[in-house]
Design a protein around this nucleic acid. Structure first.
Lengths: 249, 249
DNA sequence: CGACACCTTGAAGAGGTTCAAGAAATGTGG
DNA sequence: CCACATTTCTTGAACCTCTTCAAGGTGTCG
């Protein structure tokens, strides 16, 4: 296997020895299939903070696996104003929004210097016809996006500001934890305005809600450094929102 | 080809002569491939109004193409209260929410007596490994769901009540028009409460907004019978929402 | 015809927004 | 390395949209 990795491409770290292989595309593949997948990764791409990986309207060619860095995806209106539709971190996929119409339906912006693996979608399709477990995984990635979006709809449709921010923080630390980071401390890569856009709130509301959480001793907030002191309280906020609506119904 | 249809199943109407074939799963397939797809449709299922096709937590086995009738999908909390995540009509697919975790992440309820074609997902996967254009179509269906959900997030995250209802009505008539119905008249299959849940508003707000539209001569509202008198005005409401935000930024 | 679900409308109230000003952090160029 | 410009964040006060609560009306189905 090893000689393959060396001869195939100038990329030093292949899928097989990437530390994200259990979260990313090779998830569940055996060594042989992982190597075949690795051959699809034709390039790596570095994106500076603030730059875009692709823009709304761009031709869709490839999907991207994030190796390092953070992204936001947003739907930009003609005038430059945008609605954030998601935040993505290492091991997550970008670009699937383009599958439907062969052009991207949103813009992906790096929130910090980032590196992605470029996977031409036609090659992924080809390979997934040959490797059922890869096909399954592609379907799961696409389907997972649907489930995530449903949850955001529930959040936007039925939660109040505090509940939304609590759910947001819990979701972030959970994903960070899966990547080996702390369950209680995190650094936000996005501005209050971007969080607000994602949660359907104004930046002032985000700021105020953070202050409220801090007053109540639920979190410690220092700019973008967040220390979760009482995760239980956050969970109760989110869960309680369901109960409350149930009683109201 | 014809003898296949007759011998294979007791189903009288196959995909090849279904009047939804250009909107539904066989879209873009040639006759031979359409017939192979038809063999995957092992059953039809009738669902009475108010009954569920599947429930949150059910094992995921199949996806469903709607032949007749309307559905809503909703995320039900333990207490029976639910957030509507979408409305589906003839030619659209249901069940994709289960692809990710092998169990359904929402509940599909018939809003009127309905009939669906049952397609075991493993068979669809098998066939799409053999027919690239079917594979592409499965990807497009999954990807299309993502794009649609993004739009709903934009709607919930940044539009006001009037804008949301305008967008909702326009989306409905557009889909109905694609199915040969009027561009100006429609009958709502769902209650004000269900519309409200979908749009992140209360049923009273929906009712009031309908009344406001009626006062302004934009639509004619008679219970669930809606006559759109000024589609232009509705479009302006939706488009204007973007402009306004752009100016505010 | 009566029971039930659904819809409409009003009035009061709450949650979030808007506008505004100032403070803190970050980045830039000399 | 510091001063200045810029971006980001915080907080207050007034306002507005949507919600909540309540009552009555309309339609539908057994």
């Amino acid at each position: 296997m090893d000689h393959h990795i060396k001869t195939l491409s100038p990329i030093k770290v292949g899928c097989a020895n990437c530390n994200l292989k259990d979260l990313c595309m090779p998830m569940g593949l055996n060594l042989t299939d992982t190597e075949r997948l690795n051959q699809v990764v034709t390039a790596r791409k570095r994106i500076k903070r603030g730059k875009t990986l692709y823009r709304l309207g761009d031709k869709f060619n490839s999907i991207y696996a994030i190796r390092t860095g953070y992204f936001k995806t947003c739907v930009t209106t003609e005038d430059g104003r945008d609605q954030v539709t998601g935040f993505q971190m290492a091991g997550e996929m970008l670009g699937l929004d383009g599958v439907m119409s062969d052009e991207h339906s949103c813009t992906a912006v790096a929130l910090e210097d980032a590196e992605v693996c470029v996977m031409p979608f036609e090659d992924i399709e080809q390979l997934s016809r040959e490797i059922p477990s890869l096909q399954r995984h592609v379907h799961k990635i696409l389907g997972g996006e649907i489930v995530r979006d449903q949850y955001v709809m529930l959040l936007l449709g039925s939660m109040r500001a505090e509940e939304r921010l609590a759910a947001f923080l819990l979701n972030l630390v959970e994903r960070l934890h899966a990547r080996g980071f702390s369950q209680t401390e995190l650094i936000l890569r996005m501005t209050r305005e971007e969080i607000g856009s994602y949660l359907g709130l104004k930046l002032e509301t985000i700021s105020r809600t953070f202050s409220k959480f801090a007053e109540e001793g639920i979190v410690d907030v220092n700019q973008r450094h967040i220390h979760i002191l009482d995760a239980q309280a956050l969970h109760q906020l989110v869960d309680h929102s369901n109960c409350k609506h149930a009683l109201a119904a």
